[in-house]
């Protein structure tokens, strides 16, 4: 392995744990339900199935506060040049880990250190305002990135060509189909060249023509990006795009290794689970 230079991007995570506090939405009734039903079931039939969701923890000093342990003691070191696939059952913590890498969730325990500008495609609407038109959203994104007028014009042209929304570009995003909103979101996020690209699984949607186009565009940006981390249930994408696989379960990393060997094991386990 070659030694990384000082300016290369990296993501370093040490003993990171993340709990979601649940304060709202009737924590009492939720607590009752969880205690009576799920609590017993889960403890008795532990680990027969892939676990859905993180552990539900009750705080000792405040019995009214429920914590959901979304990530548990994560240790990771991702270096420049790596393309990482995050896999795991629903609610295994993939998206939460991605959001933590993006800096949206700040961990209460442990450390996360990143170098390099990050772009995260976490949500089809990715911070877009649905009431504004596609063009206005592009403009806002440009402002958010601190672009000059010239750069915003360039961004607008680039995204317009990619998304092929024609006259819909000037209509509110609210009336877009999910595919159209995704084209816009994908086009926008891939128009800039981040050093670290984080992709949540939604980008697998969209029609087949778009898929090819998206794959091409993603290929380009992956070439320039130093780190790519993606989560998906669509495993062929992992096989073609990633070399490293991280397997999460109930907020813990249970396996971390090359895609070639690990993916088959993962598929086997998943099939056995059904």
């Amino acid at each position: 392995m070659s030694e990384n230079s000082l300016n290369d991007s990296y993501i370093k995570i040490d003993h990171l744990s993340l709990e979601f506090p649940l304060y709202h939405g009737g924590s009492r009734s939720l607590k009752k339900t969880l205690f009576v039903k799920a609590g017993r079931m889960l403890t008795k039939q532990k680990r027969q199935h892939q676990r859905t969701g993180g552990d539900v923890v009750f705080q000792e000093n405040d019995p009214n506060q429920i914590l959901i342990q979304a990530l548990h003691d994560i240790n990771l070191d991702i270096r420049a040049g790596e393309r990482v696939g995050l896999v795991g059952h629903n609610g295994a913590g993939k998206s939460t880990l991605l959001r933590t890498m993006a800096g949206i969730y700040e961990p209460a325990h442990g450390h996360i250190q990143t170098r390099g500008n990050i772009d995260a495609l976490l949500d089809p609407n990715a911070g877009m305002n649905p009431a504004l038109s596609g063009r206005e959203n592009i403009f806002l994104r440009g402002k958010r990135l601190g672009f000059s007028k010239e750069q915003i014009r360039h961004l607008e042209k680039d995204v317009e060509e990619f998304a092929e929304l024609n006259e819909f570009m000037d209509l509110p995003v609210r009336i877009y189909s999910s595919g159209m909103a995704m084209r816009l979101g994908f086009g926008l996020s891939t128009a800039t060249t981040p050093k670290i690209l984080l992709l949540d699984e939604w980008f697998m949607a969209g029609d087949s023509v778009f898929q090819e186009k998206a794959a091409q565009r993603l290929e380009n940006i992956v070439q320039s990006a130093e780190i790519v981390v993606l989560t998906t249930h669509y495993l062929p994408a992992v096989r073609s795009w990633c070399q490293r696989l991280i397997w999460l379960e109930a907020g813990r990393i249970i396996a971390d290794g090359p895609v070639d060997t690990l993916l088959d094991r993962y598929i086997e386990t998943m099939e056995a689970d059904i």
Binding site: R99, A102, G103, I104, I118, A120, L122, D123, N125, A126, G127, R144
Partner: peptide
Amino acid sequence: NDTIHSIKL
């Protein structure tokens, strides 16, 4: 909340 959950700002 939409913006806060999808973008670091």
